[in-house]
């Protein structure tokens, strides 16, 4: 069975129509548009600095082949010359004239038009793009610290979100009290206020609480996610009341009921909330940008932003660190794709 017939098969064994082929074409183009930039980023992140500046760009990560030639102070990049056998080391290029040296004795010097020579390259993964920023400080850029800060903000904020949201969701789903509707309205209200319209006073509040330029200042204002309350409440509404009554009769306190019954039974919802929260916090940008001042408090996103704003952008490091920042999110997505898309489809929030 050929690929075309396989792709063309549809439910009921009907043959693919023109519309179907249009759909496949659409998918193919969209796939390239989405995948290519990311793939390009990953490929580029493994290229040596000299390779990144090649124009037009090369596709796969390569490194120039270098020739050790007797009498030369340093290795020379290898080139072939149109119409001549063998490989030559490029010693200099002045205007349109290239000066090359034969690696074999008697080390003949060749002068040719620059357009007639072709560089030799071999596949090469420049791992140092990753290892160097992670082991040595690049001027003010301490990427291991940024990584740690990002992880700290993400993990602490997620734990806080999960605990606070499940507690609130529990109260709003399992208890009947007169002000319940009022609290639900407050949640809706909080949902409708984007953080972006309260930046200035939020900055004041954070400042007064002595949280300015601390990681807690990036964590606390975003941890009380109203979306999370809804997610948890909707899920907890589906738990049978009998389980809680049975535990009450068995002598459980409300606190025990929450931790020993509501929390374990709500694990699917808690997992969705935790995943979403990790992604939100890992990617947060504007608020940390405002609240985190000194570079030792930067999260990875702030570090990347500042690094690319430098006068001389060190693309080889920048791309590698960008890939690093994609890694956790991509891994989470690869393994938990269903619960993420499911959770977003049910809450209508991202």
């Amino acid at each position: 069975m050929g690929v075309a017939t396989f792709l063309g098969r549809r439910a009921g064994g009907r043959k693919a129509s023109f519309t179907d082929w249009l759909c496949y074409a659409y998918l193919a183009v969209a796939f390239l548009t989405i995948a290519l930039p990311v793939v390009w980023l990953v490929l580029s992140s493994f290229k040596p600095e000299s390779e990144l500046t090649q124009y037009p760009p090369t596709i796969l990560p390569n490194a120039p082949v270098l020739l050790e030639i007797e009498g030369q102070p340093r290795p020379l990049p290898a080139y072939t010359i149109e119409g001549r056998e063998g490989v030559f080391g490029l010693r200099a290029q002045v205007g349109r004239i290239a000066v090359l040296i034969d690696p074999h004795p008697p080390h003949e010097q060749v002068r040719v038009e620059a357009t007639t020579i072709t560089r030799l390259a071999e596949p090469h993964l420049e791992v140092s793009n990753y290892t160097e920023p992670l082991t040595a400080r690049l001027s003010a850029f301490d990427f291991p610290l940024f990584l740690y800060n990002s992880a700290f903000v993400t993990i602490v904020a997620t734990i806080l979100s999960v605990v606070m949201n499940s507690m609130a969701g529990y109260a709003l789903s399992r208890y009947r009290f007169r002000s319940r509707m009022g609290f639900l309205l407050l949640v809706v209200f909080a949902l409708m206020i984007p953080q972006t319209v309260i930046l200035v006073p939020l900055f004041l509040v954070v400042n007064s609480l002595a949280l300015y330029d601390t990681l807690w200042g990036a964590i606390l204002p975003v941890a009380a996610t109203p979306v999370g309350i809804f997610l948890m409440r909707q899920y907890m509404l589906t738990l049978p009341e009998d389980l809680f009554e049975a535990a009450r009769i068995d002598g459980g306190s409300e606190w025990q009921l929450f931790w020993r019954i509501a929390v374990p039974l709500s694990m699917p919802a808690i997992a969705v909330l935790a995943i979403l929260s990790v992604i939100w916090r890992w990617n947060d940008f504007l608020w940390p940008l405002i609240v985190l001042q000194r570079s030792e408090n930067y999260t990875l996103q702030l570090g990347l932003n500042a690094f690319q704003g430098e006068f001389e952008v060190q693309w080889h490091y920048l791309l590698a660190m960008a890939v690093l920042s994609l890694l956790p999110v991509t891994l989470i997505f690869a393994f938990l794709q269903k619960s993420i898309t499911g959770g977003i489809a049910t809450t209508g929030m991202k």
């Binding site: 989405i34 890992w282 996103q301 920042s325 991509t330 989470i332 997505f333």
Partner: peptide, 9 residues
């Protein structure tokens, strides 16, 4: 997938 990526990246 792109929705999950950080805006900076």
């Amino acid at each position: 997938y792109p929705v999950m990526l950080s805006p900076v990246v």
